[in-house]
Amino acid sequence: MERVVPYDPGWAEAFIVEADALRAALQPLAVTLHHMGSTAVRGLPAKPIIGILGVVDCLDALDPASGRLTDLGYEAMGAFGIEGRRYFRKTRTEGVRTHHLHVYQDGSPQIPRHLAFRDYLRAFPERAAAYGALKIAIVSGDHPPGTTYAEAKAGMVTLLKAEAAA
């Protein structure tokens, strides 16, 4: 069962702390890190998992450094279904997921797509509120039987992404 909680202002600080740890672990590899996803949008209810978007000059240079991310508690998932991405997830020992790290090579079309979605929701709080209300309704059981959380919100996510791109 998915868990969506009210916005936590501590998520911004949690991102900063984790970004500092990631930069230190990946040295000398240059990486730009962005807070992404619902935890990056003030006031938006979210699954309490910090989303991080990493940008590197060369994705292949990240692969040898993956072990250092493992030392920070991340699990390397490879492309995980998205070509041109390296995906990592961090889970506490009791099984609670805390962070998602998506790393792309500079120039990937995925980078502006993720940032545009975040920035759109930040700029249009009424759209963020509608998205948040949908997420709360879904986890409260208001969705078609047999659909997952992601499937139930997919239509709105597609609409918001189109609005963000426009």
Score class of each variant (00 low, 15 high):
residue 8 D to T: 03
residue 69 L to T: 03
residue 127 R to L: 01
residue 46 A to T: 01
residue 20 D to P: 04
residue 91 T to L: 08
residue 31 V to G: 02
residue 119 D to M: 05
residue 43 G to R: 06
residue 88 F to G: 10
residue 81 G to Y: 04
residue 1 M to C: 01
residue 20 D to R: 15
residue 42 R to F: 04
residue 159 L to T: 14
residue 90 K to Y: 11
residue 4 V to L: 06
residue 87 Y to G: 00
residue 37 G to W: 04
residue 16 I to R: 15
residue 34 H to V: 05
residue 126 E to S: 13
residue 71 D to E: 15
residue 33 L to W: 10
residue 70 T to Y: 04
residue 147 T to D: 01
residue 102 H to Y: 14
residue 55 V to S: 03
residue 112 P to E: 08
residue 131 Y to D: 07
residue 118 R to H: 06
residue 10 G to M: 05
residue 55 V to C: 10
residue 50 I to G: 00
residue 54 G to Y: 06
residue 83 E to F: 09
residue 64 P to R: 07
residue 43 G to K: 08
residue 52 I to E: 06
residue 91 T to G: 00
residue 26 L to T: 07
residue 157 V to M: 04
residue 28 P to Q: 01
residue 33 L to N: 04
residue 123 A to I: 05
residue 115 L to K: 07
residue 44 L to Q: 08
residue 17 V to H: 05
residue 124 F to L: 10
residue 59 L to G: 00
residue 145 P to H: 02
residue 30 A to Q: 08
residue 8 D to K: 06
residue 123 A to W: 01
residue 17 V to A: 15
residue 121 L to G: 00
residue 37 G to M: 06
residue 6 P to V: 05
residue 133 A to S: 15
residue 110 Q to V: 08
residue 118 R to T: 08
residue 54 G to V: 08
residue 54 G to Q: 11
residue 33 L to G: 07
residue 92 R to I: 03
residue 133 A to G: 09
residue 90 K to S: 15
residue 114 H to M: 14
